[in-house]
């Protein structure tokens, strides 16, 4: 464990708390002028469920197990809130990204490019590929509405920072322990790349007090 990875994981936690806070605060997932994509949240729940199949079989540390449990539980809770509690405020007409294609693509790629052709490894690889593109429905929704509530942009910023710090962590681990993981690196680079446009607008507008609006 290094500092980059620790802060990255903490930013991931922060992003989830921001999301829960937003949902509780507005008592809806719709909010005033920005929305949370149910598809993105459902994809994240799928990511955690397929990645941590070793939860009971492989104990690494209390930290590792606690985080895994938290990510699975919180993602399922968010999906539950959106599907049942705040269903009326969730507008599927804006959540139009074709998620089935990225699920299919990630599954196909996981069957072809993996470290070992076992059920657990293919599921793990699938979760890595799926996480890389899981934010797309949310970003797509943002593009469609053209603007976002500040709290939604903070959520995306925390998520993007978490991914960015993982990139730094891999460079650090490569030099200090000769750690190599091509599948995670390439998927992670793609995932972080998706946040570039968002980061640009976040830094140039939101941090200067302006509203998040697409040009």
């Amino acid at each position: 464990m290094n500092l980059f990875r620790l802060v990255a994981d903490l930013m991931h936690l922060v992003s989830i708390f921001i999301l829960l806070l937003k949902m509780q605060k507005t008592r809806s997932v719709a909010g005033r002028c920005s929305r949370i994509s149910f598809k993105t949240q459902a994809l994240y729940a799928t990511v955690f469920l397929t990645r941590y199949t070793d939860l009971f079989a492989n104990f690494q540390s209390l930290y590792n197990t606690t985080m895994k449990v938290f990510f699975i539980a919180s993602s399922l809770y968010i999906v539950f809130l959106m599907k049942f509690k705040f269903k009326a405020t969730n507008d599927p007409r804006l959540d139009t990204f074709k998620a089935q294609y990225v699920v299919g693509g990630a599954a196909a790629l996981a069957l072809i490019v993996n470290y070992a052709f076992t059920v657990q490894e293919v599921l793990w690889t699938f979760s890595i590929y799926l996480e890389a593109v899981a934010i797309l429905p949310q970003l797509f929704m943002l593009t469609k509405t053209g603007e976002a509530e500040v709290i939604t942009t903070h959520y995306l910023f925390a998520l993007g920072t978490y991914r960015g710090l993982y990139l730094v962590n891999w460079i650090y681990r490569y030099w200090t322990e000769y750690y190599v993981d091509w599948i995670v690196w390439i998927a992670g680079a793609v995932q972080t790349g998706l946040y570039c446009d968002f980061f640009y607008i976040y830094f140039t507008k939101v941090l200067k007090g302006a509203k998040f609006e697409l040009p």
């Binding site: 991931h12 070793d54 690494q60 070992a116 993982y166």
Partner: peptide
């Protein structure tokens, strides 16, 4: 070998 693969990151 599959048993050697350990994913220590989250």
């Amino acid at each position: 070998v599959a048993e050697d693969i350990e994913h220590d990151e989250l």
